[in-house]
Simulated assay, not measured.
Amino acid sequence: MHDLSDGVARFQHDVFPGKAGLFAHLAATHRPATLFIGCSDARVVPELITQSEPGELFVIRTAGNLVPAYTPGPDGVTASIEYAVAVLGVTSVVVCGHSACGAMTALAEGTDLRTTTAVAGWLRHADASLARLPETGPDRVDTLVRENVRAQLTSLATHPSVARALARDTLTLHGWVYDIASGTVTDITPEARTRPEAGPVGDRPAAALTH
């Protein structure tokens, strides 16, 4: 905890005073424009990648950036999605995968997960992604990362709050892949997930979202 304590001290002494006005505003206001669903991997930091200020992103992080399809009943991911969309009124959702993802690597390489039963159970939410993976190929992990982002966008759309916002055309869904080594962020959003005015969609550098 020593290093973390030093970080808190630097934040309070060096960072906070320069943003005191922002934090005073945020103390009474919570209006993020974007829900960012990313991996729990420590190398993937949404605010750093997007250069967002505090208050601009509502963040959900799960192993493998997985989004379970909607089912009734209490669930932390579902509750967070519903709160962001139905209560906070975010206008964009990003599902962001990344290179060298441990969860996707385990699935692509058939890692034995019998000693980590909770992990194995959670990764079942990537079954649809795995079904799209070619049996052979040199880029199986990278391919699975991309297919998984697309599959999680499909799962996301099963959530009632998301489906309603999409029907009202008040929400757009975006699929990104972040490459750790190069810092590249690629937009792989299927065309149906964006508003018509977004134009043609394919693998491309991710444009900045409006916060």
Rank of each mutant, 00 (worst) to 15 (best):
D203L: 08
T111P: 01
G199D: 08
A157W: 03
P74A: 12
S161P: 07
I188C: 10
R132D: 08
A118T: 15
H98S: 10
T115F: 15
E197F: 00
H159F: 05
L133H: 09
V149M: 10
A167E: 14
R114L: 07
A157C: 05
G102E: 07
A84G: 09
E109P: 00
T158W: 02
T194D: 03
G76R: 08
H98P: 06
L171T: 01
S92G: 08
I180P: 08
V141C: 08
A167R: 11
E109M: 13
A120V: 06
A151G: 07
A131H: 08
V85H: 04
G199N: 07
L123E: 02
T143R: 14
P134N: 01
V201A: 13
G202Y: 09
G102V: 01
A163C: 07
A198C: 01
L171A: 10
R164D: 15
D112W: 12
D187L: 04
A100D: 14
L173K: 05
D187H: 10
S80G: 10
L156T: 05
G137L: 00
G102R: 03
D75A: 01
T184P: 00
V185N: 05
R168L: 06
P205K: 14
A106N: 04
V201C: 12
T172L: 13
L166Q: 04
G121L: 00
H174K: 05
A198D: 06
V94Q: 02
G202T: 10
T105D: 07
T105K: 11
E197K: 09
D142S: 15
S99H: 06
A106W: 04
E191K: 02
Y83A: 03
G175A: 06
V90T: 06
